[in-house]
């Protein structure tokens, strides 16, 4: 964890010093980053809004990772789940609270799990590599979502590529203390669900027999097989679980804030989730904090464009990428340490 944080700050410092070339004062940029992520209740609300899906996606990647799988498919899983929740909300608009959002969430989790299951089944039964499969499933999900949103349930009142609105009974808004505490921001009580889910995943992984079996498959699949733990089944279940976790994003996106499926709503949550899991070293509780950090970074960097003249949208992406690079390079770090000791 120490090294990971060191990597984070190394990347941050490097990225900030790059702003010198753009003629900016790095300290000033840092202060903007900080202020626009935490500066006001409004800013904090937005940061937490970005944090919520990142927690879910980070957990999705982490759970798969504990089973020895690299889930690049959180993006596709959350797309399918969100689409499913929206479709339900559009098709049955008259359902009422709290049954409606609960049902929508259930459907979303199921569909997310199904999307994970496809990859898991192909991995276990056909031996297809999950990285390739999940990447391809991302594309398929994006295609299905576009078609469904634009041709089956488009928003009749807008030219935007977005679906019609779900029934009002699906929205958490009126019952949502978090949303009330952060007015004008899309953050919702999905945040609480995210934190509770993370704790639940921690219990599952470290306290239950199934969690032990799942981790065993991840540490050493051969040993698991010998111990009578079915590597195939565990891997399938793990990817279903990962898909369902990514599917929780529908709660914060549809029921929590927008009430519809907007194409491009995800700021690459599924992929940033990989960085979150990495940063947290796949620890479920660590994921909460890592997601908060990445959420803050996303919010902070998106305001750089607004606050300065030289740091554009693209430059702020460079800053984010450098920080992720810094985080992932902690492996390199320990490697170079080892070399130095050898000499």
């Amino acid at each position: 964890m120490k090294k990971t944080l060191a990597g984070f700050f190394l990347g941050l410092i490097f990225a900030l010093s790059l702003t010198l070339f753009a003629g900016e004062n790095p300290l000033y940029i840092a202060s903007i980053l900080f202020k626009s992520a935490f500066g006001s209740r409004y800013d904090l609300g937005l940061t937490l809004f970005y944090t919520t899906p990142l927690v879910f996606c980070g957990l999705s990647v982490a759970v798969a990772f504990h089973a020895g799988l690299f889930n690049i498919g959180a993006e596709g899983q959350l797309t399918m789940a969100t689409l499913a929740a929206t479709a339900l909300g559009v098709a049955l608009p008259s359902l009422s609270f709290p049954f409606a959002p609960l049902l929508a969430l259930m459907v979303a989790l199921l569909v997310g799990a199904l999307w994970g299951f496809i990859a898991g089944w192909l991995k276990a039964v056909r031996g297809s590599h999950e990285v390739v499969v999940t990447i391809m499933l991302n594309f398929i999900a994006a295609g299905i979502a576009s078609w469904f949103v634009l041709h089956v349930m488009p928003n009749p009142n807008s030219q935007n590529p977005e679906s019609a609105l779900v029934g009002s009974g699906y929205m958490l808004k009126d019952y949502d203390p978090i949303a009330r505490f952060f007015p004008d921001t899309p953050v919702s009580m999905a945040l609480i669900v995210a934190i509770m889910t993370a704790i639940g995943v921690w219990v599952l992984l470290w306290k239950t027999t199934f969690g032990f079996e799942l981790r065993t498959v991840g540490y050493n699949p051969d040993a698991a097989n010998r111990a009578g733990i079915s590597e195939k089944n565990i891997k399938i279940i793990a990817l279903c679980l990962a898909g369902a976790l990514a599917g929780f994003v529908s709660l914060s996106e549809v029921m929590g804030s927008s009430g519809q499926f907007k194409i491009g709503f995800s700021a690459d949550y599924g992929f940033v989730g990989i960085a979150v899991a990495l940063l947290a070293r796949n620890h479920p509780i660590g994921v909460i904090f890592a997601a908060f950090l990445m959420g803050a970074l996303h919010k902070g960097a998106s305001d750089l464009d607004l606050e300065t003249t030289t740091i554009t949208r693209d430059f702020s992406k460079i800053i984010q990428s450098l920080i992720i690079l810094g985080v992932t390079s902690h492996g390199l770090w320990s490697w170079s340490n080892r070399r130095r000791k050898d000499k």
């Binding site: 306290k207 239950t208 027999t209 199934f210 050493n220 051969d222 040993a223 010998r226």
Partner: peptide, 29 residues
């Protein structure tokens, strides 16, 4: 085939017997 090197002795000790009634109850270790 035999051990999880990065894991503590007790996890290795129950490997393969984790579902026995002695080590597992209601799905919890």
């Amino acid at each position: 085939y035999g051990v999880l090197t990065s894991r503590p002795a007790y996890e290795n000790f129950i490997l393969g017997y984790q579902r026995s009634r002695e080590y597992s109850q209601f799905g919890f270790l």
